[in-house]
Design a protein around this nucleic acid. Structure first.
Lengths: 337, 337
DNA sequence: ATTAGCACTCGATTGTTGAGAGTGCTAATA
DNA sequence: TATTAGCACTCTCAACAATCGAGTGCTAAT
């Protein structure tokens, strides 16, 4: 892999990323002054194809980077785009708000990223189950309804409006909640269910079913439901590789399923900004896509990810820079705990 | 418009709704035993076309109902589909839950309707601005954050986590909130902003900007943001009239805009179940769609709508029945106030 | 090692043709 | 007078052939 091959691969990849058309030897020779003739480039391209970095859609059309080609481009060739002042300010100002709600941050982030990059974006919220339980509290709303608030050690909260069981008063409920909080503070929320209630606390034992119900609300409905936020899914339609209605169906369908996206994270749990190219994800529905993902934190712990989904010929350099900055700023903004 | 024309229009419409193919005279004569020959039907169809009920995609293809034709079919010809026992039960059971959160009901409804009908559905939540203000309350979360709860006379609540201004304590905030609640209970939330704060209450006057901020949160971010819920948008891709990527873009794009949908409601604010066919809505992006909409209530007041968007050849009878039942059950479930 | 030259391949575009579905009109029929 | 059989006509669609052009691989010359 000599330096000329590298130059050619880089030029070809960048040209294809911006044009979406297979790139021929003549085009390369003309646009980038490589100092060699098309014929030479043809030879080099033939070599690059043999090495697996390029592909030909059909005999005698230009070449296109293979997944391996993109990978090499991202890892070795591409120069990371610098972030502009205006863009950085735009990102910062998004998070300057008095609202202190996780959900709000998640939504804003998703919109922002999709807007800036022009690709669909996904933001994965902190997994509720992995949070550390801290306290439970009831606030009366009216005669038969109460607001139930759960808090984690990170300072995250979630609340639900529920109907009060007839046999209990609000005061009793809160007494129970205090008991409960004292007993289980520090336990991971996902594990709460498995804990046998401490036989010493008679007040809790009497109401085992109640606590099961309460936990059920937070665990099932509260967490999974809103864990994933997608913004700008339709921007995928702007890219010519998705002119086929079936591809559109597969990609948009994929973006609708919460679970599918978690697969990606599961398979590639690395920290920081990372690109996943086409088949590297081994998920059929998005074979024609690449994903760039970045993690964000609350305090020191990685709690969620920001992702961008686009065609394989994604603007990797730009998107990776944006995600780096966004996930940084988001982590900063979430330092409220 | 004699009875034979009516029969033919009905048969043709129903055939087209289920086949999506222009219907010819031979097909009609064969499938529905009308007792006349294709030639006669051709004459009748020519008449129906002249009257504006039918259209021909091109000379010598079968006919297709025009918007006027669908309108006549919906108003005069179609027999309302009865609802099955199982379906009714499915709808009922959806609303049997201890969760008492408006948002939850809205989401469930949207999913349910899209699932049952096979078309995208939209649910419009009660307009927060039109609710009657009842009370405001702060609940402390930790040192610098509080949960702000607003309640309407209908029993709806909305809450936000906010950071506490440094110069105020939680106790002070709640004293102010009580003052505020006493003074403005009964006022429409949308009007709150316009009220000059009562000069008698000195405690309030001191913190005018604070209340402006508080109101700002509820009015701008809280209300519009989540007013519209869409479920199952991709089911539109199952219908052959949306094989064209540009039509898909327009319809899905329309479904993404909150504001556009409110246009429909604005133009056709009628109560009860209603079908809007193609050009009747005069919204370009959904010229090729029909919409069925139904209103639901909290108590006696209509507060929102459930809508289904589909191709013009929608299964009107079925969808209208479903929406009637769903909006009924939803209204029942919301009778908690 | 590079490059000019050239034959060759393959997709995309255009034009042609034939089949099929459906019509409108006319003349015959009940 | 209303209906119908018959027929010529129109229009779409699929299949096929012809042409064009971008781009290649190979060979021979530099």
């Amino acid at each position: 892999m000599d330096s000329r091959k590298r130059t050619i691969l880089q030029a070809l990849t960048e040209n294809y990323i911006s044009s979406a058309e297979p790139v021929g030897s003549r085009t390369l020779a003309k646009k980038y002054n490589l100092g060699v003739s098309p014929a030479t480039i043809r030879n080099e391209m033939a070599d690059l194809e043999e090495l697996g970095f390029l592909e030909q859609p059909h005999t005698s059309s230009g070449r296109v980077p293979s997944d391996k080609g993109y990978r090499f481009y991202v890892d070795e060739l591409m120069s990371r785009a610098p972030i502009g002042y205006q863009l950085r300010e735009r990102i910062r100002s998004t998070y300057q708000s008095r609202v202190r709600e996780l959900e709000w941050f998640i939504h804003q982030t998703a919109k922002l990223v999709s807007d800036i990059t022009g690709y669909p974006s996904i933001v994965l919220a902190p997994s509720w189950e992995q949070g550390i339980f801290s306290a439970l509290q009831f606030v009366g709303m009216d005669d038969d309804r109460a607001l139930l608030i759960m808090r984690t050690a990170d300072g995250l909260t979630q609340n639900k409006t529920v109907s009060i069981p007839k046999e209990l008063s609000l005061v009793q409920l809160n007494a129970l909640a205090q008991d409960f909080s004292r007993q289980f503070a520090g336990v991971a929320i996902g594990d709460l269910q498995n804990y046998v209630l401490d036989p010493l606390s008679t007040s809790l034992l009497e109401h085992v079913e109640l606590w099961q119900t309460v936990l059920g609300w937070f665990l099932s409905e509260g967490s999974d439901e809103e864990r994933m936020t997608v913004a700008g899914p339709l921007s995928i339609l702007n890219y010519p590789e998705f002119n086929d209605i079936n591809k559109v169906r597969r990609v948009l369908g994929f973006l609708e399923q919460d679970k599918a996206v978690e697969q990606i994270v599961h398979l590639h749990p690395a920290d920081g900004v990372m690109a996943l190219i086409g088949s590297e994800m081994s998920i059929e529905d998005i074979q024609d896509c690449s994903v760039v993902t970045a993690s964000y934190r609350i305090g020191q712990t990685v709690v969620g990810r920001v992702m961008v989904v686009g065609p394989r010929r994604m603007q990797y350099a730009y998107v990776m820079t944006v995600l780096e900055v966004v996930s940084d700023e988001l982590s900063q903004a979430l330092k409220w705990a």
